[in-house]
Write a protein that binds this DNA or RNA. Structure first.
Length: 411
RNA sequence: GGAGGAGUUCCCGAGUGGUCAAAGGGAUCAGACUGUAAAUCUGACGGCUAUCGCCUUCGUAGGUUCAAAUCCUACCUCCUCCA
């Protein structure tokens, strides 16, 4: 059993760092005091909706906060919302979400478990499925649960309200989502529930229900929502503006370098463990021009890759980036493509077919398009002929666009 | 239960018999520039094809027509209103 960090101030500071809101803050202090006094860890809960098979940096904002709780000695519990997932969280949605099939949910859940341990300490993490207590509820119990909240209050939620006002449909079952999530807190007797700011309603529902069921109320700790690579929308798999924590170092590094400059500080704050003071220094440096945005961004990329891979992998990714994008040189390593009969005609390699077969482009039409746009180079020379046929020399290097390379190998 | 509306290319969204591979925006990709795969500007953006060409696409299945995303029939899905 790990010990609880005895310094209240230290705990508070750690918990508050980066948070958007804590409701209510004074109750948190009380809980912490009690926990320290009895050396009894607080139960910290996070619900994950297993709809996305890949965890991305957006999820890690909350996970990292959980990790901090772990390090402070508290017990964290991850709830995989296999049962709630059947409804789909209506939060922020303008339309009813489709319900996922159980098999699909289970598969996603398994992936989640693999991935969250890149941030969390596996030894100290408890994972539960909420079907455990939600599935056995009788209809009567479900009705009882539903009676603990009113339609009017439910409609206060702005996503429901918007849909209601604009005559978009709201399924009755969607009202159950917050109720069920709140009931999770009752089932676990949670002390703290973590979530993004978009989860405010659901987190508060937990407090409400706990009160109804005569329990001590949990504290809602909310983290800001991380913007995705486009700089405006929240990071999400479905918007394609995400960085998955499973992605290879090169990819991750490159994606970070491609984010809008204005997003950098946000990432420092929410996905790295850089101190608040240092982030402030960086901000000043950027503002007065004493620091170069590119260098700051590279540092950010280095730090993030280090977290999810290693310091060394980060260095390599950086070298690769410099070489390919700053000096426009070929990378040290590139995929090798063995020439096959399919791309040869009359003893010559047909370029469009080659590009398509090597998956450098999606098809021969796109291959021709790329050549037309001057995006294709053979050994550094821009190709002009859309339908080029050629006999490759050994070690011929083909480049498409800025970042796709292959090295040809004779059959 | 009754009445009405909608389903278009990755997304949003125009298009109501030929001039439609289908406006516009977004996303994406490429080129230029650069400080980076930022920003900005320009261009491309169904597939196949050694340029004129061919094939597939507008919810699904049929039909009318020389010709349909556009008209008709049935079906599926979604939405709204009345009860």
């Amino acid at each position: 059993m790990s010990l609880i960090e005895p310094d209240l101030e230290k705990q508070l500071q750690q918990i508050q760092r980066g948070t958007a809101e804590i409701i209510p803050e004074n109750a948190l202090v009380e809980k912490l005091k009690k926990s320290i006094k009895n050396n009894k860890p607080l139960t910290v809960k996070l619900g994950l909706d297993p709809t996305a098979p890949d965890i991305h940096l957006g999820h890690t904002v909350v996970l990292q906060k959980l990790r901090q709780f772990q390090d402070l000695g508290h017990q964290i519990i991850i709830i995989l919302g296999d049962y709630t997932g059947r409804i789909g969280d209506p939060t922020g949605k303008s339309e009813t979400r489709k319900q996922l099939m159980t098999a699909e949910l289970m598969e996603n859940a398994a992936t989640y478990q693999q991935q969250i341990y890149k941030v969390l300490d596996a030894e100290k993490t408890k994972i539960v499925f909420n079907s455990e207590w939600l599935a056995p509820l009788t209809f009567e119990q479900a009705i009882n649960l539903a009676s603990k909240y009113t339609v009017a209050r439910m409609l206060e939620r702005d996503d429901f309200q918007k849909r209601f006002k604009t005559n978009l449909s709201i399924g009755i079952h969607e009202f159950f989502y917050p109720l069920m999530q709140g009931y999770d807190s009752v089932a676990l007797k949670a002390d703290i529930e973590l979530g993004g700011t978009d989860q405010k309603f659901n987190l508060l529902m937990g407090r409400h229900l706990q009160k109804e069921y005569h329990q001590e109320q949990q504290i809602a700790v909310m983290m800001p929502i991380l913007e995705g690579l486009d700089g405006t929308n929240k990071m999400s798999k479905s918007l394609g503006n995400y960085i998955g924590i499973d992605e290879p170092p090169h990819e991750m590094y490159g994606k970070i370098m491609s984010m809008p400059d204005q997003l950098m500080l946000r990432y420092f704050e929410l996905v790295t463990s850089e101190s608040v003071e240092e982030i402030a220094r960086i901000a000043t440096g950027l503002q007065d021009g004493s620091r170069h945005p590119r260098d700051i961004k590279m540092r950010l990329a280095r730090e993030i890759v280090s977290i999810y891979h290693s310091v060394q992998a980060a260095k390599q990714a950086e070298e690769h980036f410099k070489q390919v994008f700053q000096q426009h040189k070929n990378p040290d390593e590139m995929p090798v493509f063995k020439i096959t009969g399919a791309v040869i005609e009359d003893g010559k390699v047909v370029l469009p077919k080659l590009l398509a077969t090597a998956k450098l482009v999606s098809g021969t039409s796109e291959a021709r398009r790329m050549v037309k746009q001057g995006a294709v180079r053979i050994n550094g020379v821009v190709v002009e002929d859309v339908n080029l046929r050629f006999v490759p020399e050994p070690e011929t290097i083909i480049k498409v666009g800025k970042r796709k390379f292959i090295k040809l190998q004779a059959p």
